[in-house]
């Protein structure tokens, strides 16, 4: 029973991946919108883009990790 609850918890934690996907999409979309308005400034901001994506994605990875922990380690 407890193991099954852990699996349900893992599934719930996996929702976090979707949230992270929204975040990453937001970052990339806004970058693209800005880059199309001012293409000359776009190249200098790719590093910022990747840092932003990395931070947004890290939280999704955390939820993935929680899911894995619930699946395998609890």
């Amino acid at each position: 029973m407890e193991g099954q609850l852990a699996h349900i918890g893992a599934g719930l934690a996996a929702i976090g991946s979707g949230a992270a996907a929204i975040g990453v999409g937001n970052v990339a979309g806004n970058y693209l919108a800005g880059a199309l308005r001012n293409p000359s400034a776009a190249a200098s901001q790719t590093a910022t883009l990747f840092i932003g994506i990395a931070f947004a994605e890290a939280l999704g990875i955390f939820s993935f990790l929680v899911a894995l922990l619930l699946m395998f380690a609890v």
Binding site: A54, F55, E57, A58, I61, F62, F64, L65, L68
Partner: peptide, 13 residues
């Protein structure tokens, strides 16, 4: 923490 888990987590996932 985030620095290490980001790398390992992405690769593992």
């Amino acid at each position: 923490v985030s620095h290490s888990i980001r790398l390992a987590g992405n690769l593992m996932a």
